[in-house]
Amino acid sequence: MMILILGALLGFISVAFGAYAEHGLREAVTEEHFRFLMTAIRYNQVHAVVIAAIGLALLNGGKLSNLPALKWSGLLFIIGTVLFSFSIYLSVSLDIPSLVNITPVGGITIMAAWLVLIVAGILAKKKL
């Protein structure tokens, strides 16, 4: 249940921060920083949907809910999204450029989440 809740929370944050970036930060930051923010928001939104879908699959109680790889994938998506998107949000909003050093760690974590999701899919296919 926690994966679904965190996915929904990340979705909410992506919309709220998107509005803040568009209406509050756009004029205050460089065009390059605004592009960084839009990339972070896009990643946050896409992965919030994926996280929520994984959360729903885990709550469904079917064969997918018994796959530890699916849960690990959801957790990795959460960690990766927070590291990737929030490092950019905070870096640009608070003018702390060094925070973007965390961003690649988030990106790698998201890639790992996709790979673990592939494993979950292969395992689910074998169980069907």
Rank of each mutant, 00 (worst) to 15 (best):
I3F: 07
I5L: 14
I5T: 13
L10T: 07
F12G: 12
A16I: 15
A16T: 13
F17N: 02
G18V: 09
A21E: 00
H23V: 05
H23L: 08
E27F: 05
V29T: 12
F36W: 13
L37M: 09
M38K: 15
T39P: 02
A40S: 07
Y43D: 01
N44Y: 04
N44L: 12
H47S: 01
V50I: 15
A53C: 14
L56I: 15
A57P: 09
L59W: 13
G62T: 02
G62V: 08
K63L: 13
K63H: 08
S65V: 11
N66M: 09
L67C: 06
A69G: 04
L70K: 01
W72V: 06
L75T: 13
F77T: 02
F77W: 04
I78L: 10
I78K: 03
I79Q: 07
G80W: 02
G80N: 07
T81Y: 02
S85E: 04
S87C: 10
I88V: 14
Y89E: 05
V92M: 10
V92E: 05
S93P: 01
D95N: 15
D95R: 14
D95L: 10
I96G: 03
P97M: 10
V100T: 15
N101P: 00
I102F: 00
P104I: 12
I108H: 06
A112I: 15
A112Q: 11
L115G: 15
L115H: 08
V116G: 04
V116Q: 07
I118M: 14
I122W: 09
I122A: 11
L123V: 13
K126L: 13
L128K: 13
L128E: 14
